[in-house]
Design a binder for these strands. Structure first.
Lengths: 129, 129
DNA sequence: GTGAACCTTCCCGCCGTGGGAAGGTCAAGC
DNA sequence: GCTTGACCTTCCCACGGCGGGAAGGTTCAC
């Protein structure tokens, strides 16, 4: 299985597959001509990486998860700890965004949105530094 | 006023002040020795940029807002439109994050978090590709 | 007249992701 | 056999924003 097929089978782009290899997440075999060769386990790994990325895990976190996944003597506490930390980060990010949204909504509600230049959005930004 | 004082007065770092200039957001004067020179209006502009960035506006949006701010014949509708679009983007991002959080919480709740390797988080990620 | 604290420009790093150039390899069709 | 096209390889560049830091000029206080 070459990289193109692996990309199709895993849903990870060729570019990203090479990047994940480059950053030490995986090490596919090579055939005599230098082409990367992927087996079923490699596809599984790529799908794992893709799923973790879609859940918002950072690359270092994905790397740690991969190691735990492949470690038969892992303790689930390590996985849970990593996941809980990630959840906390996501929650913080949501809080930040919600704060921005609330402020922007307040401004937008006060803005007429007509042809006149008067606009509390602009004036508020200008005076809130 | 040199760039260091301007940074202190505006709360924008020297690096970012130069970056904002480089990307065409502002054009401070220069003194004979080549140093950038900032007046009260420049500080005001920097504070405006900083406030807009803190509200999560992208650089292109900030550029547009700056132009509208300085355009006396602007219509508030333009400002509102830009702001509403930005709010919509932030809301989408929050929805994405909340989806991730919900999925992760479900997984985390099912994980014992003890010394044993059994962990629905890992197995679920591994099979959800 | 020297040292410190500024200033200038320029390059490199981050993190993921995509685009693309230049060149090698392989298989199908004539 | 030979061409063509679809692969593959490595390598560099870009993005958004921000920071670090090097190499060199300027200004000011002592």
């Amino acid at each position: 299985m070459n990289i193109g097929e692996a990309a199709l089978a895993s849903g990870v782009s060729r570019k990203m597959i090479r990047y994940y290899e480059q950053t030490g997440l995986m090490a596919p075999g090579r055939s005599a001509n230098g082409y990367r060769v992927y087996g079923p386990q490699d596809i599984h790994t790529l799908r794992f990486i893709g799923a973790a990325r879609r859940l918002g895990f950072s690359m270092p976190d994905v790397k740690a998860l991969l190691r735990l996944w492949q470690d038969r003597s892992r303790s689930s506490a390590d996985v849970k700890r990593l996941t809980d930390g990630h959840i906390a980060q996501l929650r913080n990010r949501v809080t930040e965004l919600n704060t921005m949204i609330a402020a922007l909504e307040t401004l937008a509600r006060a803005c007429e949105g007509d042809d006149r230049p008067d606009c509390p959005i602009i004036t508020s930004i200008a005076s809130s530094g």
